[in-house]
Amino acid sequence: MSNIHPTAVIHAGAQLDSTVQVGPYAVIGPNVRIDAGTRIGPHVVIEGHTTIGRDNVFFQFGSIGAAPQDKKYADEPTTLEIGDRNTIREFVTFNRGTVQDAGATRMGNDNWIMAYVHLAHDCQLGSNIILANNATLAGHVHLGDWVFLGGFTSVHQFCRIGAHAMTAFTAAVSQDVPPFVTAAGNRAVPAGINSEGLKRRGFSSEQIMVIKRAYKAIYRSGLSQDEAKQQLAQMEAQTPDSAEHLRVLREFIEASARGIIR
């Protein structure tokens, strides 16, 4: 195949679309499937039961689909699933899932993953996410759509970060970060809402104002968490244009097992 560099090592059992490009010294294992238009850079290693969608770009020296860094792992056939149009930069490490959780590590579409990012086993990522250099996710972390993690952010296992949330440089996240919220510090604490990100994504000024009011109810009003959730429910009824965003915020808090950052 003219798209495959002659020094690449591709197992006969791998399934690559004829349009996939593979660079020098890349290694692709027997249970790997790669869809059309994806480009694999030099020295990338892709192994395990790994499925990669269309039009992704993998820069050089990545480790994709390696066994989870979990001492309980006993070579079960768990998976890594990557969607479409993701850009994945140098020296990343993406591990497969474990049978103790979903059995799969998953990434959606249109994500921008910078150098040295680590995705541990069973992480579940949505779409349109940006992970800046050296962001590190421990096992079982969930990221909603449009999340932005600043450089050197570290996220504790089992934490969830809601849609449109953002972390500052070197944030250390040990509890859940609600949707729309900006987190900063070690340990990470709330630092307002991601107003600029919401503007860029087409949220109206009124919707952003309502989200700010919701943030104040949760973090600045002195209300208990139960009282704040009640206030959010009242705001949903009073602001139909923002009701969906408030519902997502309220339900995220209600479902939090680790508790939200305070």
Rank of each mutant, 00 (worst) to 15 (best):
M1C: 12
M1F: 14
N3V: 06
H5A: 14
H5C: 12
P6S: 15
P6Y: 13
T7S: 15
G13L: 09
G13S: 14
G13C: 12
G13E: 15
D17W: 12
T19G: 12
V22P: 00
G23P: 03
P24T: 10
P24C: 11
P24E: 15
V32T: 09
G37F: 15
T38D: 05
R39W: 09
I40R: 00
P42S: 15
P42C: 13
I46Q: 00
E47F: 02
G48Y: 00
G48E: 03
H49G: 03
T50P: 07
I52W: 00
R54S: 07
R54P: 01
N56E: 04
N56T: 01
F58D: 00
F59V: 02
F59C: 01
F59S: 00
S63W: 01
S63D: 00
S63T: 00
I64N: 01
P68E: 01
Y73T: 02
Y73E: 02
A74S: 14
A74R: 15
E76H: 05
P77T: 11
T78S: 12
I82H: 01
G83K: 07
R85W: 08
R85Q: 09
T87D: 06
I88D: 00
I88N: 00
E90P: 03
E90C: 02
F91N: 02
V92N: 05
V99E: 13
G103D: 04
G103R: 04
T105C: 02
T105F: 06
R106Y: 07
M107Y: 03
N109L: 09
N111E: 06
N111T: 02
A115D: 10
Y116A: 01
V117W: 03
H118K: 05
D122K: 05
D122T: 06
C123N: 03
C123A: 03
Q124F: 07
G126I: 07
G126T: 05
L131A: 12
N133E: 08
H140W: 06
L143R: 03
G144H: 06
V147W: 10
V147Q: 03
F148Y: 12
S154G: 15
F158N: 01
C159M: 04
R160T: 06
A163N: 12
H164M: 13
F169Y: 14
A171H: 11
A172C: 10
V177F: 11
V177E: 08
P178N: 09
P179H: 13
P179E: 09
F180L: 04
F180P: 01
V181Y: 08
A183S: 06
A188G: 07
V189F: 10
P190F: 05
A191Q: 11
I193D: 04
N194F: 10
S195Y: 07
S195A: 14
E196R: 13
G197A: 04
R200M: 04
R201V: 06
G202K: 01
S204D: 10
Q207D: 11
I208G: 03
I208Q: 08
V210F: 05
R213G: 14
A217K: 14
R220P: 05
G222L: 02
E227G: 11
A228D: 11
K229V: 14
L232R: 11
E236H: 09
A237W: 09
P240N: 12
S242M: 10
S242W: 11
S242R: 10
V248E: 14
V248D: 12
F252A: 07
I253V: 15
A255D: 15
S256F: 11
R258W: 05
G259Y: 05
I260R: 07
I261V: 09
I261M: 08
R262V: 06
